[in-house]
Amino acid sequence: MTRYDRPTRRGIGRGLAAAGAALVLTTAGADAASVAAPARAIPHSGARTAPAASAAVPARDARTVSVNDTGYLKLLHASGEILTEAGSISGTLPGTAIVRLDIGAETVTATFTIKPATGGSISGTGRAKIGSDGRYTSFGGSLSVTRGTGRYAGAHGTGKLYGKIERVHDTLTVQTREGTLDY
């Protein structure tokens, strides 16, 4: 039998930061484009007062996409009740993501920022109830997209949030189901 001291979470965080977090997301359901429903045209900011600028930055159609993603994140940092997990994502919104989890006795509160590979960012919050114990802490609840930048400026939306933390290796599996994103 061998005895060893496992690395601290801080140490793991540094290692991950140096190596880059690995995150895998899979797309569930149809491609985002196929479910996009063009709605009304939203002039880009400043388009009405600056025609020259509008030519450089064309207005785009508002879109609604359904989002069904699954991601596998790794620990970046831990302190108190807070776990910060990060990595790259792929799926409906491929790119990178960082998730901050505040884990209470019964609930998990999450804040997240997704940076799609196509540019811009999507941020929001989530709240979920813890549903299991032991090695895995699973949770289920809902999320809200509250803001975005770049092509996702003004983004908002909702969805169901599911997740599972594997406590020994501090990996987070997170799922968004029945998500709707307007931008």
């Binding site: 496992r6 979470r9 831990a78 108190g80 009740e81 807070i82 776990l83 884990i103 209470g104 006795a105 813890i130 114990d133 032991g134 090695r135 802490t137 933390i165 406590r167 020994v168």
Partner: peptide
């Protein structure tokens, strides 16, 4: 600010 879930306790 203290949470069992962020520890390894109670695996």
């Amino acid at each position: 600010g203290l949470s069992i879930a962020t520890s390894d306790l109670g695996l």
